[in-house]
Amino acid sequence: MKSQTQILPNSKQIQNSKSQFSFWGFEIGIYLVVLILLVILGFSAPCFAQAISSTELINNAKSYDGKMVVYKGEVIGDVMPRGKHAWVNINDGNNAIGVWVSRAVAKSIFYTGSYRAKGDVVEVSGIFHRSCPEHGGDLDIHAQVLRKVTSGRVLSERINIDKKNLVLILLGILCIILILRQFKPKSKK
């Protein structure tokens, strides 16, 4: 019987082992989730880590040369396609830097900054070149990943009332001067 009991666990033991098994299963599940999260974060971290400013990149170009950098800013001007790639100029508020990106990725850019529009704000991750051998020595970034952070928009323009009033006042003065010019001074005898 003893051996049986040793060999065959009783129902309580079976229940305990089941709960133990489910506990271990739960714990493994948590570990797996944590592991997956770590893997996701681990891989994504280098791509979209803290963005480096254009001033920092330009001022310390030598130390960033050939390294993977993250740069964020507003797309300005034209997106200029060149074969399978395109040039996108991105301004972070201090300077604009040219980013060499695949043409397919560049198609996701909808708004570019101008007087009429606020351009899409994008974050790029890529190799920084202090003097790019592929592009005649330009300082640029060859993007590997481009992510749109915020979408741009068309800027509406409201008439500035103060300016309008000033135009009218000056126009009045101008008209008075033009009228006064018609009166010729009396010639001296």
Partner: peptide, 10 residues
């Protein structure tokens, strides 16, 4: 016309 001067055109 742009802040990058001639660098804008690449």
């Amino acid at each position: 016309p742009q802040s990058q001067s001639m660098l804008y055109y690449h």
